[in-house]
Measured scan of single mutants.
Amino acid sequence: KKSYVLIKVKNPKTKETHTIVVPEENLEEVLKALASQPNVKVVDIERFP
């Protein structure tokens, strides 16, 4: 059974918020990819039960 993680990201320029759902096993690479985006800020990470 896969567990999923909900990542909320915000664009500081446009103030838009997006929610991305990723499998927990991919969380680290997704966070690394997001960290390299200049106008993306991770605001929240939630685990799915």
Rank of each mutant, 00 (worst) to 15 (best):
K1W: 15
K1V: 10
K1A: 11
K1D: 13
K2A: 12
K2C: 04
S3Q: 12
S3C: 06
S3H: 13
Y4N: 03
Y4G: 02
Y4C: 11
V5L: 07
V5H: 03
V5S: 02
L6H: 10
I7C: 01
I7H: 00
K8E: 02
K8R: 11
K8W: 12
V9W: 15
V9D: 00
V9Q: 00
K10E: 15
N11V: 06
N11G: 04
N11S: 04
P12W: 15
P12S: 15
P12L: 15
P12R: 15
K13T: 13
K13M: 14
T14H: 05
T14W: 03
T14Q: 03
K15Y: 09
K15R: 04
K15M: 13
E16P: 01
T17I: 12
T17D: 04
H18W: 15
H18Y: 15
H18K: 11
H18S: 11
T19H: 09
T19Q: 08
I20G: 00
V21T: 09
V21Q: 06
V22I: 09
P23N: 10
P23E: 14
E25Q: 08
E25P: 03
N26R: 14
N26L: 08
N26K: 12
L27N: 00
L27P: 00
E28Q: 12
E29A: 13
V30K: 03
V30L: 06
L31R: 01
L31H: 01
L31A: 01
K32H: 08
K32C: 07
K32P: 00
K32R: 10
A33N: 10
A33D: 07
A33C: 14
A33L: 14
L34N: 00
A35G: 11
A35Q: 09
A35R: 10
Q37K: 12
Q37L: 09
Q37C: 14
Q37P: 02
Q37S: 07
P38T: 09
P38R: 03
P38G: 09
P38Y: 03
P38K: 05
N39G: 12
N39L: 05
N39Q: 05
K41T: 13
K41M: 15
K41C: 08
K41S: 10
V42C: 04
V42N: 01
V42E: 01
V43T: 07
V43P: 00
V43Q: 04
D44H: 13
D44A: 14
I45K: 01
I45L: 04
I45H: 02
E46G: 07
E46N: 07
E46C: 15
F48P: 06
F48S: 05
F48Q: 06
P49E: 13
